[in-house]
Every structure is written in structure tokens, then in C-alpha cells.
Design a protein around this nucleic acid. Sequence first.
DNA 1: CACTTGACCTGTCCGC
DNA 2: TGCGGACAGGTCAAGT
Length: 301
Amino acid sequence: MPELPEVETIRLGLQKKIVGLSLTRIQILNPKSFQTDPNIFLGATVSGVVRRAKVLGIEFDNGYTLVFHLKMSGQVIWLPNSHLPALECSSQASLTSSRFVGGHPTKDMLGDLPNNSTRVILEFSDGSKVYFNDQRKFGWIKGIKNEELKIMNYGMKNTIGPEPLEKDFSWEILKQNLIKHKTQDIKVALLDQSTVAGVGNIYASEACFNSGINPQKKVKDLTDDDFKKIHIGIVKAISDGIKYGGSTRTHFVNAEGKKGLFLDYAGVYNRVGSSCKICQTIIIKITSGGRGTFFCPNCQK
DNA sequence: CACTTGACCTGTCCGC
DNA sequence: TGCGGACAGGTCAAGT
């Protein structure tokens, strides 16, 4: 699921809702989803909500952070203290409108929580709750000491590269990280989190489109000019993703249960058979590195 | 080594 | 309607 813009969208939403609240209860519906001792966190107060790459962290004042990875289908949804009897019409209506402004709930976003993909529920001192939903059960929540987040690599096994929106992400750094994958397709190399943090399958296709580079072009064939274009293309894709509240193909919703709009503005992702917004050529879909990859055969050489 | 293929899971969609 | 197969935002280990 969530790539950097989706996780950042959740972070921005959650931050407004739970900072300053203490955690009063943790319900673990799927043990594999919650890989830490809940007692560490019970009674602790939320001091911040952070993000690194695609990893979300709820930071507590006891020196620990609850770290979330949403993988393909994870959702983190906050709901206010509604304790509304599910049958009460008026409160149901107001709940629905606050969560689904501008659209109708789909089967994925079942009106009621918890639902059959809810894995963990966090309950806070004001009665509000955070639901960790994850249909495919690939995601996880871990507990890490705040000062060990970096050394523990935010719970990830492999190296995490630079944040694309931080100042230290230059085209030179991008080039340096990319050339380790010299024989790979550029789009595949962008998916490696050590190249640049937080780029996934949607934004890798979009970054290639933004830069006018064919996703199957080999890294070793890229010129400095190409690296500069790709650098700009990544920053634009990620920035636009955040600007439009992330992408929803099927699962993604923000902390308030709303879908992201980025795919309405995407240049190529999921647009196979449609015409390119720049040159009207039909967008095609191929497989690169085993993943669906979209591009305009005219704009991207 | 470097790159590719499964595995981890569940659900949906499409063709027959 | 039912059934099989492909496919879905991500990592990571095992296999070639």
C-alpha cells in the first residue's frame, strides 16, 4: 500500500488527533500484527507522530515509539469517542459524514469499525481509538526505544536511503545510490529503499514519467542529465502525492478514513489504454522486476 | 555476486 | 453462479 505520501498523509492527520493523549487500552486481534509488549505502552502519553520512509511512528513520553509498517494493505484510522450504539441513527449519520466527506464508503471502508480486517485497536484517554486494519496481514507494529530508532533502522532489515524531500537528497546522491544497480531497469532500482526512501510501485512509475525516462532504461545507460531529471521527477511525484492526500487504488484511506486523490492526477499509473496527458499516445503497461509498470512510449525514451 | 522468484496473506476481478 | 487463475501500494529470504 502506502508509499511515502500515503504514510505522510496519515501522519499529518494522526498528529492533530492524538498528541497529548494517553494510551488506555490495546486490543490485539491478530498477534502477528503486534510484535511488542503492550505493557510498555499502556498509560504512556503520545508526544508526537513521526515518519521515516514508509514507516509511521507514534512516539510516547516514556521513551518508546510504536512503529507501524503498513505493507500492501494496512490502514491506520482514527475515530473519535463515539461509543455510539451502532443502531442509533443520528450519531451514525454524523459519524459517516465526518469520515466520508465527498464520497461513499466502499466495501473496503466498511462503515463500522472494527471490521474483519481490523488487527489491532489502540484506545486513548479521551475515548478515541486508532484502528490498525490490514487485510493481507503483511503489516506489523513494533516497539522501539526512541533513541534506538535509527540504529534499529525503524524496524526494517535493509538499509533506508535519503528522504526525498530533505535537503540532503541531491541528484548527485541519487546517482551515487543508483549506480550500484547498474544493470537493473531504472524503475526497479528506484523501488530499492536504499536508493531513496519511500518510493514504491506507484511513485516509481510516476517519477519515470515526470522525468521522461523509459522505466526499462538500464541504470548504466543514464547520463548525468538523466539523473538530474529523475531527481526532479521523484521530488515532484512525492510532493504531488502528499498534496493530493495520497493514492487510493483499493485500500488506502487517511487517518480519518478518506481516500487519497493522487491517482486522479497521476500521469501513467493505472492508466493503461488511456491517452497520455501530454502527447495523447496510449499508455502501456509492462512488467518490470515482476511489478506492473506504466509508461508513455512516446514521452519516455 | 547480482538478479529473479517465492513467500507472507486475503480479497477481488475477469474469463470460461 | 461457480471455479481457476492472475493480480494488488512491500519487504526479504531463498534460489539460480
